[in-house]
Design a binder for these strands. Structure first.
Lengths: 149, 149
DNA sequence: TAAAAAAAGATGTTGTTACATTTAATGTTT
DNA sequence: AAACATTAAATGTAACAACATCTTTTTTTA
């Protein structure tokens, strides 16, 4: 069942226009899946993404600016997401020594533990709905990169 | 510049996992573009999408349920988006004759005029950042459809 | 046909996003 | 060095999304 049937729209202005619609629709579909996956862990998707960036930097700290730069969804408010993670004791905030305007954010031991737990679950979960071959995923990546270029 | 450089992440669990990240990142990139495109017209993206569905049905009405069914982003609240469009006099709400629980929503003449104006602009705008060939768009559509299947 | 179940849409609540402004610290210029 | 500009992050706010609940009407079933 293609996008045309899914949203019951027969005609599109162009194949590219259809791809744009398809991208938004597929993202929304995926987003729903992510929300229900993360819910049992008390995390939202942006919170998870920030935790992953922090782990990638660990044991080095990340400033809020670095988080914004690398976030998948640039629009969301990194500072307040870090607030939420700090409340849950998944991250630690320290004033940066070199630049007292900046804040060093670290993933806590508890945060790392949570991510380790999630890693395993997520791998199985992702594999569970992977309908693409390695080659197809590769082509998809190439096309998405080209779309943004 | 591929997704790996964009979010400065060297390694991915799998090519599929990378494609998932790429999809979210590309959607966010596109969303930013859409927001700034619609802003001068005083529309949000979900409002525009609902208007388009209404036009597709015209002169037949759409119930709120039909709108929800066909919306790209299922999560948003169709009833309240219709509120906003009604405030701007772009749509008309009437009680449905056959089922008094339901509401018939129509696009107004003003709404149709706005869409006609947008059609032209949008075509140029979309063409302006279309980096894909017809064939590539087609492959992208096929892969996204398969991803959701 | 009366009672229970289901459906359509509206509404209340809480959390988040989008965007502007603020505060404090650092850089730059003359 | 004082004045101005820039930067990092936090905060205020209005609008929106996510999710549950409510009201009204229709459908089902005992």
């Amino acid at each position: 069942m293609g996008i045309a049937e899914d949203i019951r729209q027969k005609k599109f202005r162009s194949e590219f226009s259809k791809a744009i619609v398809n991208l938004i629709y597929t993202n929304s579909w995926l987003n729903q899946k992510h929300i229900s996956f993360f819910k049992p862990y008390g995390l939202t998707t942006p919170q998870f993404n920030i935790l992953r960036i922090l782990r990638g930097q660990h044991p080095h700290p990340s400033t809020v600016n670095l988080l914004i730069e690398r976030m998948l969804d640039k629009s969301s408010n990194a500072s307040r997401i870090v607030d939420k993670l700090e409340e849950k004791e998944l991250v630690i905030r320290k004033q940066c020594k070199d630049d007292r305007r900046a804040v060093d954010v670290f993933i806590s031991e508890k945060g790392q533990q949570l991510l380790r737990e999630l890693d395993k679950e997520m791998e199985e979960w992702e594999a569970g709905f992977n309908k693409l071959t390695e080659e197809e995923s590769n082509v998809l990546n190439t096309l998405l990169d080209k779309l943004r270029s």
